[in-house]
């Protein structure tokens, strides 16, 4: 565990807390993509199946359970409690393509052919593109609430910090080698490129995030 990794994890936790705050404070999930949240739940469930077979640390297990349960709770809020506020007409990204993309790569790039390894690889590729429905929704609506933009920023920051952690570990831990994780992680961070730019620009002006249409 190094500082970059810890800050990355914390940023991931913060992003989820921000999303929950947004939904609970405004009692609405307007501007939030249900499809992205659904994909994250699939990512966490397929990746963290190893909870039942390997124990790494208490920290690791607690975080895994926290990610699965909070994302399931967010989906519950969006699907049942605040369903009437869900902006279905703007959440139109076709996630079948993302699932097909991740499934195809999961069969080509696993470290070894076992059920857990293939699912783990699938989760990495799916996570790398899972933000796309949310970014697409933001693009079509043009702007979003502050909390929503902070949420997306914290989520992007998490992967960016992980990338720094990989460079750090690669240079300090002999034999540290995770090519699929790295490539999927860099793809994921790159998808935030445009968003980061407009987010920082909007912070500087002290205004809401507004995207050019």
């Amino acid at each position: 565990m190094n500082l970059f990794r810890l800050c990355g994890d914390l940023s991931h936790v913060v992003s989820i807390v921000l999303l929950l705050l947004k939904i609970r404070a405004t009692r609405s999930c307007v501007g939030i993509s249900l499809k992205t949240q659904f994909l994250y739940l699939v990512v966490f469930v397929t990746r963290y199946l190893d909870l039942f077979v390997t124990f790494i640390s208490l920290y690791n297990s607690v975080m895994k359970v926290a990610f699965i349960s909070t994302t399931a709770y967010i989906l519950y809020l969006m699907f049942f409690k605040f369903k009437h506020t869900y902006d279905k007409d703007h959440d139109t990204f076709r996630i079948q393509f993302l699932i097909a993309f991740a499934a195809a790569l999961a069969f080509v790039t696993p470290h070894r052919y076992s059920l857990l390894e293939v699912l783990w690889t699938f989760s990495l590729w799916l996570e790398s593109v899972a933000i796309l429905p949310q970014l697409y929704m933001l693009q079509t609506t043009g702007e979003c609430e502050n909390l929503t933009s902070h949420y997306i920023f914290a989520l992007g920051l998490y992967r960016a910090l992980y990338a720094v952690n990989w460079v750090y570990r690669y240079s300090t831990e002999p034999g540290y080698w995770q090519p699929v994780t790295w490539i999927a992680g860099i793809l994921q961070t790159a998808l935030y490129g445009d968003f980061f730019y407009y987010y920082v620009a909007s912070r500087r002006r002290g205004k809401r995030l507004k995207l050019p249409t």
Partner: peptide
Amino acid sequence: DSIETEKDEL
């Protein structure tokens, strides 16, 4: 089998 590090990241 190629070497790959234990999956200790989240």
